[in-house]
């Protein structure tokens, strides 16, 4: 069996939405270089809809694929939907990740949440801090 599914390899080799957004409405960065994974998500938001999303990732194949897939899943969606995106949904959309790479999908989920928090804070929009707490990720 190959290390990664065909979908992971496709998103890794042809990542969607790579890049940055000038004057993004929300930016979220998670991970650290010491652990070998950093993900950064840029959001353009109009009327609570994610009209554009870009990402930059320093990391392994599954980290790049997870970011790419996560951006696909939230592009054009209401913020509410993006907030409900779980790492499991990202991994499933990629036809699965090896167990020891699941933390890559967690990073993707966290990066999106951070970007949305950033948007709320920049715009003085109140939000439920409890609900946005980072999930436990024992690997990062």
């Amino acid at each position: 069996m190959a290390l990664y599914s065909e979908k992971v390899m496709d998103h890794f080799k042809n990542p969607r939405n790579v890049g940055t957004i000038d004057n993004a409405d929300g930016v979220g960065e998670v991970g650290n270089a010491k652990c070998g994974d950093i993900m950064k998500i840029y959001l353009k938001i109009d009327d609570d809809i994610i009209t554009d999303v870009k990402f930059e990732t320093f990391g392994c194949g599954s980290a790049i694929a997870s970011s790419s897939m996560a951006t696909e899943l939230i592009k054009g969606k209401p913020l509410k939907d993006a907030l409900e995106l779980t790492n499991k949904a990202v991994a499933e959309a990629l036809d699965g990740l090896p167990a020891y790479k699941m933390h890559c999908s967690v990073l993707a989920e966290q990066a999106i949440k951070r970007a949305i928090i950033d948007y709320y804070e920049k715009n003085g929009i109140p939000y439920d801090k409890e609900a946005y707490a980072d999930r436990e990720d024992d690997e990062t």
């Binding site: 390899m9 890794f12 080799k13 070998g36 392994c60 194949g61 980290a63």
Partner: peptide, 14 residues
Amino acid sequence: EGIEGESLLLLLDS
């Protein structure tokens, strides 16, 4: 500097 080895290997493999 600035990149990670596994992605480097996988892309080289392609």
